[in-house]
Design a protein around this nucleic acid. Structure first.
Lengths: 141, 141
DNA sequence: ATGCCAGATTAGATATAGTCTAAATCTTCC
DNA sequence: GGAAGATTTAGACTATATCTAATCTGGCAT
């Protein structure tokens, strides 16, 4: 995702393309490792100190609300973020908490009686276990 | 789940059945609304002040580790807990954050090439949207 | 251009959720 | 009874995220 298309995304969502907001988006577009808010703040702020902590959180919230970014909650750890580009599932490591993408595949819809009057916006699959790195060192626990 | 089977569950998992641990388990067995740690603490402690906050967290962690209880992380809110009885999926309300059960149905396994060397322990489906109550009041937003 | 205004940003205070520490207490087993 | 280990506790502490109030910015009407 290049600079121009980020700008376009933001404006289509009714968000002004400020330097700070652009930087957060650009960082997420370049780093697919599901960074935490703190990682985003530290990295962007190091490169350009015009970004404050509060603004990082403000912008992440705006971007999530606008549907451009996804927030992944992880048990007992900081939330992680990724741009909603290609659809994918998630794998969360029990040991190190890292979030990884799993290639998308379609899921059967539940019978509507299971959902009742609820309004479903999206549906995601979460795998849990040990990531490749942690599985390798598993014996040394 | 009656008192006797709670006791049995705990002992089978190598956990002593202390009054505090039993109370946390019993509360979860009776309340299927996915309470937060704070709710569990307040409610149990009100009925029997022998339970402290730290013990609530300690026990929840032990129970999750033993596989008797599931922890559900919710974006921007406190984690929620439920006993791992019958298998089920989850629905999380965007608006009020409530977690509800969705009747279980089998999911197709991903092609193993999608998962690589990762070791999958479990796999859960999460629906997001508006719960029945929030969907009803949606216009008044 | 000028001035206004809503939106955006900021530092730092505050809130919330959860963990840690060290001492006290309870169980089990000899 | 006493040692060893598990459990509990109050309260301090940490991490994560939000709020506040002041300030800045950029677009727009004049």
């Amino acid at each position: 995702m290049d600079g121009e298309s980020i700008k376009q995304c933001l404006e289509e969502s009714g968000l002004r393309c400020t330097p700070q907001r652009f930087a957060v988006m650009a960082f997420l577009a370049e780093h697919h490792g599901h960074p935490t808010a703190a990682e985003i703040f530290e990295s962007v702020n190091r490169a350009d100190p015009r970004l404050s902590r509060a603004t990082t959180y403000n912008n992440l919230r705006d971007l999530v609300k606008a549907g451009l970014v996804r927030e992944v909650a992880v048990e007992g750890r900081a939330a992680r973020f990724d741009v909603k580009g290609m659809q994918h599932h998630h794998f969360i490591c029990d040991r190190c908490g890292n979030v990884e993408d799993v290639e998308w595949y379609d899921l059967p819809k539940p019978a509507s009686r299971f959902l009742g009057k609820r309004v479903v916006r999206e549906c995601e699959l979460i795998f849990r276990g040990l990531c490749t790195k942690c599985a390798r060192g598993r014996a040394s626990r």
